[in-house]
């Protein structure tokens, strides 16, 4: 958003009608870890631990910088985690310790995830 104009309340994700470059028809096959993120989102929202709007709210609150820097499922796991923390399913301490432990299993996703 240009600094020349005062903030009018429009948020970064609300993109309809903004200027942007040409559409590049990129696509890719999803990686296993991305499919797992997608599955966790569907399963945990279906079980009632958060809503799709809760997921979107977390994505929006991450800001435009995150949209530009991180991939789609990177942002999704962050938003899923945010909602699960808010729902009280586990604590940040538990998450931090589990991430540290997973990291010791190996250098790659395959090793750290044990498949």
């Amino acid at each position: 958003m240009s600094e020349k104009f005062p903030f009018d309340g429009r948020r970064w994700h609300d993109m309809g009608g903004q200027d942007a470059g040409p559409v590049t028809p990129a696509e890719h096959d999803f990686a296993l870890w991305e499919k797992r993120v997608d599955a966790l989102q569907v399963l945990m929202s279906t079980k009632g631990h958060f809503t799709v709007d809760g997921l979107r709210r977390a994505l929006e609150d991450m800001g435009e910088d995150a949209y530009e820097k991180y991939s789609y499922y990177e942002r999704w796991i962050a938003a899923v985690n945010q909602n699960l923390i808010e729902a009280g399913l586990y604590t940040l301490e538990e998450l931090g310790e589990k991430m540290d432990e997973a990291r010791t299993r190996g250098e790659t996703y395959g090793e750290a995830a044990r498949g």
Partner: peptide
């Protein structure tokens, strides 16, 4: 970092 978070979230759940 994000893949590591996926592993941790999934295993905790």
């Amino acid at each position: 970092y994000w893949q590591c978070m996926e592993i941790a979230v999934r295993e905790l759940l």
